[in-house]
Each structure stands twice: as C-alpha cells, then as structure tokens.
Write a protein that binds this DNA or RNA. Sequence first.
DNA 1: TGACTAACGTACTGGTTCGTACATTAACTT
DNA 2: AAGTTAATGTACGAACCAGTACGTTAGTCA
Lengths: 221, 221
Amino acid sequence: MTSVDEPARPNGRIRDAARTQAEILDVATKEFARAGYDGARVDEIAARTRTTKRMIYYYFGGKEQLFTAVLERAYGVIREAEQRLDVEHLDPVAAIRRLAELTFDHHEQHPDFIRLVSIENIHGAEHIAASERLGKIGSPALDVIRRILAAGQESGLFTADVDAVDLHAMISSFCFFRVANRHTFGALFGRDLVAPEQREHYRTMLGDMVIAYLTAERAGD
Amino acid sequence: MTSVDEPARPNGRIRDAARTQAEILDVATKEFARAGYDGARVDEIAARTRTTKRMIYYYFGGKEQLFTAVLERAYGVIREAEQRLDVEHLDPVAAIRRLAELTFDHHEQHPDFIRLVSIENIHGAEHIAASERLGKIGSPALDVIRRILAAGQESGLFTADVDAVDLHAMISSFCFFRVANRHTFGALFGRDLVAPEQREHYRTMLGDMVIAYLTAERAGD
DNA sequence: TGACTAACGTACTGGTTCGTACATTAACTT
DNA sequence: AAGTTAATGTACGAACCAGTACGTTAGTCA
C-alpha cells in the first residue's frame, strides 16, 4: 500500500504534490475502511494528513472521486501481488494449494482492502464502474489458475472441466468471508475465525477443500 | 420477513401500534440494506411509511436502535427457516448436500439480509453485541450439522474430525460471497454470479465441493 | 359520558459536513 | 529578477439530517 513516511524534511512545509496525494490516499483508505463511504468524514481525513481539506478537493475533486482513487490504488496493490505469483514450477496439486494459501495470506494481511470491497458492494460497485482504470484491470491470478488447471486436467490429476473464474471465486469466498464476516460470525457462534491459533487450521482446511473438489470423482462424468 | 399489507382498512387513519412498527421495520430494512447504516436516512424511512418520523423515535428510540431492531428481525427470520430444516431423514451425504442447497437458496432469496450482515460487519458487529436478543440466539442449523456429521463419521462416510461450525462457515462463505460480492466480482471478472442461468451450476458446485471435502482421504490421518 | 392514555402529526432546531471563495506562497522558467 | 503557475492555507456558507418540543386525536375503561 506504498506507505508514505519520508524521514520528515527539515522544514515540513516543503511542497510535494506526489507526497501529499499519497498521504491523502493512505489516510483516506483507513477512514473509508473504518466507517464506510457515508460514515467516512472528509474533515477527518484532512485532519489526519499534514495538509488540509482544500487539497483533497484540489487533487481528487470530491469525496466520491477520492473513494474511487482509494479503490484504484487498493486493487492495484493486489494486482501487483498477483503478478509476483510464482507457483507454476510446482505440480498442479501443489500449485493450486500454494495459490490458495497465498490468497488466504493476502486476505488476512489486508483487512482494509476487504472492507473496501464490502463497502463498494454495498454501493453496487458504482465506483468501479465509473473508473476507467478499474474497468479492464484483469486478474493476473486468473491466468495462472487457467494454466495450472489445464496442466492438471491434461495429466488427469484434476477431474474434468473446472472453470478458472469459478475456482477463483471458490478460493476467494472462504478467504473473504473469514475476514469480512469475522465480527458477526464471532458474535453469533463464539468463534474468532481470524484468531492466530486457528490460522493454520483454516489455511489447511481451505487447501484440503479446494484439492478435494478438484480431484474428486465427479458423479456426472 | 413478515411483510405488512393488510387489505387497507376503510379509512387508513386507524391506529395500530403493531402494524405501524412492522411497517417501519419493513421500510427500514430496505433503506438500511440499500444505503448502509450511515447512508440510510431516517427521513426517507419515515416518508415511505404511512406514519411519520416521530413514530420511529416513539417506538424505537433512535436510528441506532432501529437498525438493531432490523437486524434482530432479520436474524429471527433465518433462525425460523433453520428450524424448519428437515434433512435428517436422508443419508449423511445427501443430508449435507441438501443442507448446502437450502443455505444456497436462502442466501439467494434474501439479498437484503446479506447486505445487512455486510453492513453490520463494517461496524464491527456492535449492534449485535448491544442486543440481548441477538447475543445468545444460537443456530438451529448448527445442531443439525452436528448430528449429520456425527452420523457420517460413525458410518465411515466422512473422514475424521470436521467441526460443525467450520463446515457451516465453509458453506456460508460461498453462498454469502456469491450474493454479497456479485457487483465487484461482476465488474472485475465479467461474470454475474447470480445470473439465473448459472444458478444450478453454482448450486451443484457448492454441494460437490462440500461433499468432496467431507469424503476425501485426508493425508494426515 | 367523561377522563385517561396510547398513538400519532407538525414544525422546528442545533449541530454537522461537504464543498468553495478568496488569499498566499513556493518553485520553476526564461 | 521578474513573471507564471502549481501548491497550499483560511474561513465560511448552505444544505442536510438526527432528534425533539409541543400539540392533537383515537380508543378504552370507569
């Protein structure tokens, strides 16, 4: 999330457009993730930066565009992470398991991103739709999955036709739910899905689930 | 969701506390689900009822308590549905599959409930925590799962120790994600997870996934 | 039938919050 | 060194919105 904290130049009053914008985005990300779109306060964001509210409107235009910019950067981070994916040297089963684990780790490490996605869904993904950058962002992970799946099916390890997008949805579901719904789930079932001591358990469970699905004898085939 | 639409008494001006309260809850559910907690407008809720804002404060106390009441009723509905669960006459494999399908159906049929849960999670489940009714609501479905799991394990159909809460999380994850994140997922991957023509596909996929997980030979056992 | 109370309506307020008009200064260009 | 523009700060306004003070009517019961 390209955090901004240069060692504080001698006199903090130096002008630096890029730094100011990045700092606004950092703070805005936290504020939107904390309180949702309507709950977030532009004044609060401004107060937590070294600049003023005026700058938010100067650089981003308004609250709505600021939120869009926050989303664009957040999605950019995961796309970068997906581009660093390096699992194709493994055999298909190990590769998918590793991919699931990396997805699991990424979700756990970026709860703010999860919250932003939840918030964006509450608003019907209207900001993504309005964003040119996000419209055709594509997913590097999807290509990776596609290739592993093809290899696994060719070698006979994986049973029949499983779609890459569907598998991605399956893996993401569990990772997302675990982080996004941990509060209500914890309150209702008395179990903290993100408790550190349960981490390995759920990480393994996800891998087992996905591999079991991919390698099971399907009735209809 | 116990909708209120009595055949409109002769003169609509008749006093009926229960009806007024139910109507407020109906409208509030939609408004909160539409716009989130902070995005929801008390004036808007009032305008869409046959009563006034005064009544919302008269009966519920405030916006916060109204949202809590909305959650309480929404969770009550799913608890009722879970109590009507009737799958234990089936063999364990069929019972779990049926349970997954019913969960799938219920999520699809109650998108507003899904949105409310998302919203409540954004706010750290603070309303559930503050609610006496919701604190110890329990889940009838959990008991059902527990019994099916025990039967399946005893008969050797299911491999070793799978926890009921974990299985519930696994099933819910997929159902929840599909509905809750359909907007961002659709925008980013160009696939509508809730498109009617894909419904059977995903319903089957969920069942296959859960059964595959439960019946797979686990490496470590 | 009169009194009492639960149920309801109107009109308003005080604070909040997004957004902007106006003023200013740092840095770069020539 | 002067001019130009990008970058920044201050102060304010107008709309919005949760919540309430005050007044009224319907139904109930003695």
